[in-house]
């Protein structure tokens, strides 16, 4: 029974892991992945020659940290609001609607972005900023905000529902007792709800930290419409690897960057889990 799945995982996941050795090879299409000659660390040397490497690693990490912090705060706030909404019907309706952005592909998100921000026909330039239109797709300074906004817009519903699931699992007698003691709603949130969310917050944050060297390729490539002038603020490890591999055909540098991503990603998952295990065994992932 498990044969098809095992074979698939070996091919789809395990062979590429072994393929990471490419980072130390001088790739040659004639010899392929396994037989290309070794060339030590020279791919990495090339990778770190320009400023690209530091820039993309910094972008990836900084965006992720902002996403984690703001995303968690927003999701918890919405979950608490959702829980405070009286009536199951309105609760269901709100839940259903805030999930809609999560359902659609990032390509369609980029169309929405385009409809708002296009230079000639965008809604913002034509209806809101008629007198001094902004050339959004060539103005790097606004993109950190746009990308953070779009990320939060697309993901807050999903995360809120995870936190909401934890909130409805809290023993209701705790709230009843607090009510009798005359605790305000705010104090109840502060002293009952938030502490009960601790495990979920740690788990989700751990998972996000584990992915801190990864980015949503579509968000950073498709939404800014692959615009050259924006590259300083939109280049992440994933977009770099893609561009180096498929548009520049630079297997050496892209495999070196991919190697760093895989290894650092693994090390950081292991490390965060190790730290959590030391501090609080219950919350460790594995």
């Amino acid at each position: 029974m498990m044969i098809p799945g095992t074979i698939y995982l070996i091919i789809n996941n395990y062979i590429p892991m072994a393929g990471l050795v490419l980072a130390f090879k001088k790739f040659n299409y004639q010899f392929g992945m396994w037989k290309s000659p070794w060339n030590g660390f020279s791919n990495f040397k090339f990778l770190f020659m320009g400023s690209d490497a530091f820039n993309m690693i910094r972008n990836t990490i900084v965006y992720n940290i902002v996403f984690i912090v703001l995303g968690t705060i927003l999701a918890i706030a919405v979950a608490i609001f959702l829980n405070a909404v009286p009536g199951n019907k309105s609760k269901k309706t709100y839940q259903t609607i805030i999930l809609i952005p999560y359902l659609i592909s990032i390509v369609i998100v980029s169309y929405i972005g385009f409809a708002f921000m296009s230079q000639e026909s965008g809604f913002i330039n034509n209806s809101l900023l008629k007198d001094n239109p902004v050339s959004w797709y060539t103005t790097p300074s606004v993109w950190p905000f746009i990308l953070v906004f779009i990320h939060l817009w697309k993901s807050f519903g999903y995360n809120s529902i995870i936190y909401y699931a934890t909130i409805i699992g809290i023993d209701p007698s705790l709230f009843e007792a607090a009510e009798i003691d005359g605790a305000s709603k705010w104090r109840q949130v502060l002293h009952i709800t938030l502490p009960s969310l601790k495990t979920t917050i740690i788990t989700l944050t751990l998972l996000s930290i584990g992915r801190i060297f990864y980015s949503d390729f579509g968000l950073f490539y498709q939404v800014p419409m692959n615009s050259g002038p924006l590259i300083d603020v939109t280049n992440t490890i994933d977009t770099y690897v893609y561009r180096a591999l498929l548009t520049l055909n630079d297997v050496g540098r892209s495999s070196a960057a991919g190697f760093l991503q895989s290894i650092l990603g693994f090390v950081i998952v292991w490390l965060t889990n190790f730290v959590v295990k030391k501090v609080d065994k219950e919350n460790a992932l594995f």
Partner: peptide, 9 residues
């Protein structure tokens, strides 16, 4: 936990 990533795939 661990992925090969785009290039080897």
């Amino acid at each position: 936990l661990f992925r090969g990533g785009l290039v080897p795939s």
